[in-house]
Design a protein around this nucleic acid. Structure first.
Lengths: 146, 146
DNA sequence: CTCGGTGCAAATGCTTTGCAATGTC
DNA sequence: GACATTGCAAAGCATTTGCACCGAG
């Protein structure tokens, strides 16, 4: 949907940082934009491999970092031993409820939390870049199953 | 300070879970309670080694998990490639501002955030176990240095 | 033509595991 | 005694790195 805008933003970012415009980087951006929900580096790598696109794992990791830097994706660590990502472009800032039983992830938005975050940063003269709020526990479905 | 109470709690937890009361587990608890601030598994391991206590790394990891399960310590992932822990016993629930430049970590407490968390959990019928709010950015000192 | 980027495979570093020995219950 | 726990070293796994080749600027 916003693929075109995302491409423009990435191009801008690459140019302004004196990074090169390589086909691999845009193949990865395409793949990311086609993905809904959370994904990890290896899922993306496999997905591209299956789709006939050939980029090395190293390039995937490298590019995901760039995409995070320019705000097109967010990077999370949901208590697992690997990082997960999701599109951030054009999406409101949100947080996560993570079910420890089934791994399901529920998103929520809270203006109150954003406000407290701003207050905390101001009173500590801290310049925020990204914030993550994660609530680990048991989802409604898993509570019934117990 | 609360060492005695912590030991009692750990003992209770071990007994109720049919885990064995081993000296190693309590050597590790001692070491944890002596530590202020955040620490990682390897720091704890080295600290005990230096102190003449001999426990294997595997046992350290195993025991840290148990201590987390019974609420004596908290486990975090501050964007690094390893987990960090801190005493949780008798401490109010708090969150972290993490400086991406110098790695400094500032703690803060917010009743408002706790309240929103409770509301979100209720409206999603979600049973919370632990929550983490992390704000990554640049601390006051590092902003000046730029 | 220069030097950043890529692919590959090997390396890294945290954490877990396999297995024999040990010690709790 | 039975079997969970330990120690050690080896294995796992996500991510990074070294290096030769490639291609964007």
């Amino acid at each position: 949907m916003n693929l075109q805008l995302a491409k423009e933003r990435f191009t801008q970012y690459l140019k302004s940082g004196n990074y090169r415009i390589t086909p691999e980087r845009f193949v990865i951006l395409d793949s990311v934009m086609q993905t809904d929900g959370h994904f990890d580096a290896d899922e993306l790598f496999s997905q591209m491999k299956t789709g006939g696109q050939k980029v090395s794992r190293a390039t995937v990791y490298n590019t995901l970092d760039l995409l995070q830097d320019c705000g097109l994706i967010s990077k999370y660590r949901f208590g697992e031993n690997h990082s997960r990502y999701e599109k951030a472009f054009g999406r409101p800032h949100h947080h996560h409820l993570i079910c420890l039983e089934c791994g399901d992830i529920i998103e929520f938005v809270s203006e109150k939390i954003e406000k407290v975050e701003r207050e905390v940063c101001t009173s500590n003269s801290f310049k925020a870049q990204t914030t993550t709020l994660q609530i680990f526990g048991t989802c409604a479905r898993c509570q019934k199953d117990e």
